[in-house]
Write a protein that binds this DNA or RNA. Structure first.
Length: 453
DNA sequence: AGCACA
């Protein structure tokens, strides 16, 4: 209910007080800490939002109590000394909003790896050497991976620590790469920088799109030299796809929902499945399945390739090697699973049926990459939860500890539906678990999750 | 020097 019928005409002296203060004319380098230093004498700060506005020199500060915000505004309204940050006068007024919507999702969670979006350029315009040059000004750059996405040309840049990464981000976010480093036809080249959830990029080759500066002896990827992407399946069959312990499965004719549990059941027939991630790709569904070693993955790949999870040609599997070696996935969600994390496993499922666990509705610009230099097929992984960082960095991969849960994902159901044998072993396993398409599973529990295809 | 965005 707005009391003023006059519309947006709000004058300085009649602004309604708010716990949220709007600060402008801040210095460019203004960090949240400096903001807090300025404001905390007046009360408890519960939230901030920095780098607001076209010039990124505005900010919002939210106090716990309205009176605290009022005290700050009135103090500086009558003070002879203006509010300052690093000697620069800061203008303070009540925000026209009553609270800061917490926008600190994923991209603002600091880390040592930056996600850089380079706006207004083609991928070929900015070489990896230029990127390296620009970011090396802030410290040793360990690794760089570049890729193209809907958002544009992007790069993951790994520093030693989050402090260095923060400095680089604070200095370069919203800035442009100097003209003289760019081709002449490039008119603008704005950098948008956020933090990646990654802590260590997985660079397999030195190429025009990825570098590992800590390992100069890393082999040069021959197929990456000419700029062509690695195909997921070699059309002539001669493409030597590098083997991997991670399989990329695309699922064709998906008449039934294929869940993480279903995939786990199928792929566990060949060995311990460590991690699974499901994502949408071009309207179809794909999944990454991680085994502890290449040999197991190879067996699974050969055995399952072209086979269907369900009878009647449903959910046909096409397998290739991923370029990932260690998936960066949330330990337990409807789209991903990390079976190497025991305590977050199936036993600890807190959510009641029908209650959505995590809002995976938005993925935003900070998409997850299990490894850099992802091929085009996996360079659009939308389904992974950006908040997975909390689990990923935990080095819990003891060699013998990576075990799949011995509990069948489905208790023995009487009716064994049409389950086709992808391989004899898989067939036995599936039958013994009484697996049924989860798309139909929802008929039992009224409020179950809808199928997502 | 004048209000963010999933």
């Amino acid at each position: 209910m707005s009391s003023a019928g006059a519309g947006q005409q709000q004058f300085r002296y009649t602004q309604t007080p708010s716990k949220v203060l709007h600060l402008r004319n801040l210095p460019w380098e203004c960090a949240e800490e400096e903001l807090v230093e300025l404001c905390k004498p007046f009360g408890k700060i519960v939230n901030t939002k920095c780098n607001v506005g076209a010039n990124r020199n505005q900010a919002f500060v939210e106090f716990a109590d309205l009176n605290q915000a009022i005290s700050m505004v009135s103090y500086y309204a009558s003070s002879s000394e203006p509010a300052q940050v690093r000697g620069k006068t800061v203008y303070i007024q009540y925000s026209n909003r009553q609270e800061i919507v917490n926008n600190k999702s994923s991209g603002d969670v600091v880390g040592n790896v930056l996600l850089v979006t380079i706006e207004g350029v083609e991928a070929g315009d900015v070489s990896i050497d230029v990127i390296h040059l620009v970011f090396s000004a802030f410290g040793f750059v360990h690794k760089i991976a570049t890729f193209e996405k809907a958002a544009g040309f992007q790069a993951l840049i790994q520093f030693s620590d989050s402090g260095t990464a923060s400095e680089a981000r604070n200095a370069l976010d919203g800035r442009s790469i100097p003209r003289y480093l760019l081709p002449e036809h490039v008119t603008s080249c704005l950098l948008r920088i956020s933090f990646s959830a990654h802590t260590d990029l997985n660079i397999k080759f030195q190429s025009h799109r990825s570098r590992d500066y800590t390992n100069p002896y890393l082999p040069v990827n021959p197929s990456a030299i000419d700029g062509t992407l690695q195909p997921t399946l070699g059309p002539d069959g001669k493409k030597k796809e590098p083997e991997s312990n991670v399989l990329l499965a695309s699922i064709e004719n998906m008449q039934y929902a294929v869940t993480v549990d279903v995939l786990h059941t199928v792929f566990s027939a060949f060995g311990t499945v460590q991690k699974i991630a499901i994502f949408e790709k071009n309207g179809g569904m794909q999944a990454l399945i991680q085994y502890p070693d290449v040999a197991t993955a190879a067996i699974a790949k050969d055995s399952l390739e072209g086979h269907c999870i369900y009878d009647g040609g449903y959910c046909k599997l096409h397998l290739s090697y991923s370029r990932h070696t260690d998936l960066n996935v949330k330990a337990h969600s409807d789209k991903s699973r990390d079976y190497t994390v025991q305590d977050a496993g199936i036993l600890a499922v807190p959510q009641a049926p029908g209650v959505p666990t995590v809002g995976t509705g938005w993925q935003g610009s900070s998409q997850m990459f299990a490894g850099p230099q992802a091929p085009a097929t996996s360079s659009q992984i939308p389904g992974w939860d950006p908040s997975s960082h909390s689990y990923v960095s935990a080095p819990v991969t003891y060699p013998g500890q990576t075990s799949a849960p011995s509990v069948p994902p489905y208790p023995g159901a009487g009716a064994i539906p049409t389950v086709a044998a992808a391989s004899p072993t898989a067939s036995q396993l599936i039958s013994q678990y009484g697996m049924q398409p989860t798309g139909q599973h929802s008929s039992g529990t009224g409020a179950a999750q809808p199928p997502y295809y």
